[in-house]
Design a protein around this nucleic acid. Structure first.
Lengths: 348, 348
DNA sequence: CTGAAAGCGCTTACAG
DNA sequence: CTGAAAGCGCTTACAG
């Protein structure tokens, strides 16, 4: 059985048309389920498609229709559970809507990000959803906007860029966290991890400061210890804090992963989080609940945030000339076991 | 300034040709850096491209060349750190080689997987790298192979499918783990989490059994507690073990995430892993090192495995008719603090 | 070294 | 209800 179009390359609508004894227009019509084609014809065409194992060439169709069902999904650090949860949410929403995500993991490298952005343009994506690196230039993305392809930034806000954005309520989240620590009686609260070059860190720091001031206390810069926003960074921050003899009895950490590093380093010095020292994280990643001790943290429903981000992008793709959205997901305090009331004989 | 081709839609090589006063063939030639075109001509063409902000339409080129630089990357559970590390490795290798990954997260749903596979064919991917769901039918993938598009399976082997595969050495890894537990003096060792419908679990169980037998002991089915391979599953498995009064003093867990759940549940009952009970994981995900207690586990260099998998796929794409590879990454025991020598007064 | 022509696999008016 | 023709943005022999 040597049907035309078989063999190495896949069958085309021309092959189908020939075998079904119709024109390729008709084949195209049955492909889009047009009511214009007679049932009998449709059945014949579909039978032939089945026989030849026809598979639709979407790239060709897209070229012709001058559209695309690709969406660029640019993640700054896929290995970080926060971002992989977010990515899962984005992927889910895109898939549901019939779009297919092209993935790029920039690993926090702005140069890589620029290359990837260019590549995605060539690929002809319908839109882009991106969590920028800590060092992304707002202008580079703004310029991108001139190409008329919609972009939404997620998780990290680029100041000055007039770009759609969806993120957590960092200010209010940190406010809630610090307020809670104050309620527990802590007076000397460190801020651990993250670097102030990132908007996220500045926002969280600001919430922290606001809570302090609301309680009539003064924010002390010598209580902030900047490091990379990683487990390792958390360890370093804790060590620096201990070395500084600042007298802190509690710490708000830049994120959960930093908090884990902090707890680890503290424990190495015989200080148990949740008993001798209070630590609070940010993000509520999956492992927080299972950590020992279970981590008190701020949640922003990461996966949902990814889904919402995708929805915003989709609506921009399907209805151009919309206003530029900024959407902030509400923050919520999740109390678990890594904090304790201030004891009189405090450590650190 | 109203250059032709400006405005809404992007400029094409026709626009460039017209403005530079050459034919579109020439423009195409400069695009591919052909040495055939005179320097002066090239310069002129490039100047015009810059002016119009020309961006290459790779989809059109691919259609014409009957090739593709897309690779399908199908992940069974992106939220699991093991898979997101693997995904990061795959993405990195693909990117380096000039391919672009289309992402799909099946969430362990075989139906979703089938849809996604179909979608990727329509998209015209050059190859597919997939970690199958626990329930994937070997035949469904084998059929795919007839389309002549290369596929490599990763992390989970599909028995009976004649498919390229890269994975960890589950048998030997589990063997090393159990051997270590035996060396610590444990006589009653549970196997916790995972379900035997997955090849990975069966392989690890087999390694466990082999180590037992090598030590002259007999494998006891009542010491295995199957659950979902998640943190929650780990908790359930530990509770079931405790309830069974089986007398285990140590456990090999299906993976790290299960181990975390186990440790958590044990702790709720006042049993401290690494002191009262020994637990060992599998995968060495990033958080294992930072867990309390730091988790003793088996590593298989997950990220590297992803990279290697991508390389295999790439070589299949670029050199068809190669033999079908099966590559097993070596396993290695990482000793940390979640295991202890058997004490006389054992718990559980 | 450069241009004219055909074609990749589709869709879309437009006739009939 | 179906067919013939043009065209999406490229590349590739083939002439000149």
């Amino acid at each position: 059985m040597t049907a035309p179009g078989r063999g190495d390359s896949r069958a085309t609508i021309i092959d189908i048309a020939r075998l079904a004894g119709v024109s390729k227009s008709t084949v195209s019509l049955v492909l889009k389920n047009s009511p214009m084609v007679k049932d009998e014809t449709r059945a014949r065409v579909e039978a032939v498609m089945g026989e030849l194992g026809y598979v639709y060439n979407r790239a060709a169709a897209n070229l012709r229709m001058a559209r695309s069902n690709f969406v660029g999904m640019i993640i700054s650090d896929l290995m970080n559970p926060f971002f992989s949860e977010m990515a899962a949410g984005i992927e889910e929403a895109l898939y549901r809507a019939g779009y297919v995500p092209i993935l790029a993991n920039t690993n926090e490298d702005p140069q890589r990000e620029a290359q990837v952005l260019q590549s995605m343009r060539e690929q002809g994506v319908a839109g882009i959803i991106i969590s920028p690196t800590g060092l992304t230039d707002a202008d580079s993305l703004a310029e991108f906007r001139h190409s008329h392809i919609p972009v939404v930034t997620i998780a990290r806000r680029l100041n000055g860029a007039h770009l759609a954005y969806i993120g957590q309520d960092n200010v209010n989240g940190a406010f809630l966290a610090t307020q809670y620590l104050l309620e527990l009686g802590h007076k000397t609260i460190a801020f651990l991890g993250g670097t102030s070059s990132a908007a996220t860190q500045r926002e969280r720091m600001q919430g922290h400061r606001l809570a302090l001031e609301a309680a009539g206390m003064v924010f002390q810069p010598n209580l902030v210890f900047e490091t990379a926003p990683t487990r390792r960074g958390g360890r370093e921050a804790a060590q620096a804090m201990l070395a500084s003899q600042c007298g802190a009895t509690a710490a708000l950490c830049f994120n959960d992963v930093v908090a884990f590093g902090v707890i680890h380093a503290l424990s190495d010095c015989g200080i148990e989080a949740g008993r001798d020292f209070s630590v609070i994280g940010f993000d509520n990643i999956a492992e927080s609940e299972f950590h020992r001790p279970p981590l008190t943290t701020i949640t922003a429903h990461t996966r949902t945030m990814g889904e919402h981000g995708a929805h915003i992008l989709l609506s921009m793709i399907e209805h151009p000339n919309q206003p530029i959205y900024v959407l902030i997901e509400p923050a919520q305090l999740i109390i678990r076991e890594s904090c304790a009331p201030l004891q009189l004989e405090s450590t650190a």
